[in-house]
Write a protein that binds this DNA or RNA. Structure first.
Length: 296
DNA sequence: ATGTGTGTTGAT
DNA sequence: TCAACACACATG
């Protein structure tokens, strides 16, 4: 929904029930015609949604429609497109991505503070299309690794399990000392920035590693030992069948979850402790783009 | 003093 | 799951 609350309201007014009855005509003592909206003693309106058995309060609103809209946003985040909504409309991919990229608790917080619209507009405006769109890229899992203390320590490198490195990463000319460094560029889906890591083989330890750039990423994303880094790859979408070059530039992803998690993707509403997920994705050898994002 | 949001219960 | 209702508790 790229439309503002006002626009939605107008659509609704012009739509069907404009002539039926005015919501403002009724008193707060009666129930709301909107799903997830409950009257408040003071004439205002509260919004709520249910997660499992528990009620999640979405805040109070002076405008009944605003409360309904808040419910809609929560429904989209909690239940996805399939969830019933007060103001049905064409699914907005950008907004869905915006929602998907944030913890439920954060979305709820924005609703309660009435800052959702602002945050959405701002996000869409500034790095917008780029990172959000990337977040929607279908991907398939490649492999995972639980990062060790040294992976997030002073060594400034991530050891990539040999088996997986050889299977999924570009081949490295380990013999040639003069070989140019292999760089992997990662585009940060969450922040829109681009990260670059050096990918190399350390003969001393006989291991494949991501070096330059890795520590900065770890620091900035707050990755800690025990988190799991999961690599995945953009699902094949044979765009132009003529150009076989895409093959060498397959976009790859990496995501990191906090150790404690007990649910995979299905994040239940958690006011505070949500599993933090850092996701990278990107592409290949010659320095194409790769990216990262955080979500709960 | 006022408004919020939870406790709780009964329906769907 | 969901809303109606009462009121304990925040908030200023």
């Amino acid at each position: 929904m790229s439309t503002s609350t006002q626009e939605v309201e107008q659509d609704w007014m012009a739509g069907d029930e404009a002539a039926a009855e005015s919501p403002r005509a009724r008193s707060s003592s009666s129930s709301s015609r909107y799903k997830g909206v409950v009257p408040q003693p003071n004439g205002r309106w509260g919004a709520q949604i249910y997660e499992r058995d528990a009620r999640v309060w979405l805040g109070t609103f002076a405008d009944e429609a605003a409360a309904a809209r808040a419910y809609d946003v929560a429904a989209l985040r909690f239940r996805g497109r399939s969830g019933a909504v007060n103001f049905p409309g064409p699914a907005d991919a950008a907004e869905m991505a915006f929602l998907a990229a944030r913890p439920k608790a954060e979305v709820v917080d924005m609703l309660r503070k009435h800052t959702y619209d602002d945050e959405l507009r701002q996000a869409l405006r500034s790095g917008g299309a780029g990172d959000r769109a990337l977040a929607l890229v279908p991907r398939v899992s490649l492999f995972e690794k639980a990062v060790t203390p040294s992976d997030v320590g002073r060594l400034n490198r991530l050891v990539v399990p040999k088996l997986h490195a050889e299977k999924h990463f570009p081949p490295l000319d380990e013999g040639a000392d003069a070989a140019p460094p292999v760089l992997l560029a990662f585009e940060d889906v969450g922040g829109g920035k681009v990260w670059r890591f050096r990918y190399s083989f350390w003969s001393s330890s006989q291991s494949y590693v991501l070096t330059r750039g890795w520590s900065r990423f770890v620091r900035e994303k707050g990755i800690t030992a025990g988190d799991t880094v999961a690599f995945s790859q953009a699902a094949v979408s044979s765009t132009s069948g003529t150009d076989g070059e895409m093959d060498a530039k397959r976009r790859m992803f990496i995501e990191c979850r906090k150790r404690k998690r007990k649910d995979d993707g299905g994040d239940d509403f958690c006011p505070d402790g949500g599993a933090r997920v850092v996701r990278l994705f990107g592409a290949n050898i010659a320095g194409s783009a790769i990216g990262a994002s955080c979500m709960c």
